[in-house]
Amino acid sequence: MKLDKDLKDRIDKYFEIVSAIDLYNILTQKYKFKSINEATVTYGLYLSEERTDSSFLCDVESYTYLDIKQELEVVKVKNVEDSVMNTHIMHDNECSIPFAA
């Protein structure tokens, strides 16, 4: 199998038809891809981007060994996006962690 013109056109066609939201739902719900929790804070212009996954978790997911499934305890936290939408939360422009409060 090679990425010749026919195959490329076929792949392109799928991505032209599917909407971004549908694709996201398909990938995360049907195929169990994990979403990267990123908080992008916009205050007029781009301010900061904080990756909420620990580097440890990223390493484990990328290089986890193959035969024995690892079980990681995940502590559920309030989704940062919810906070962004909440106009009652005040953001400190000088703080690199805007949701610390």
């Binding site: 991505f15 694709l23 996201y24 990938l27 979403s35």
Partner: peptide, 15 residues
């Protein structure tokens, strides 16, 4: 193509 499409709605996933 997945990454580019998801970027249009500000989403990212672990591939």
């Amino acid at each position: 193509l997945c990454r580019e499409k998801l970027a249009t709605i500000g989403k990212r996933i672990h591939f």
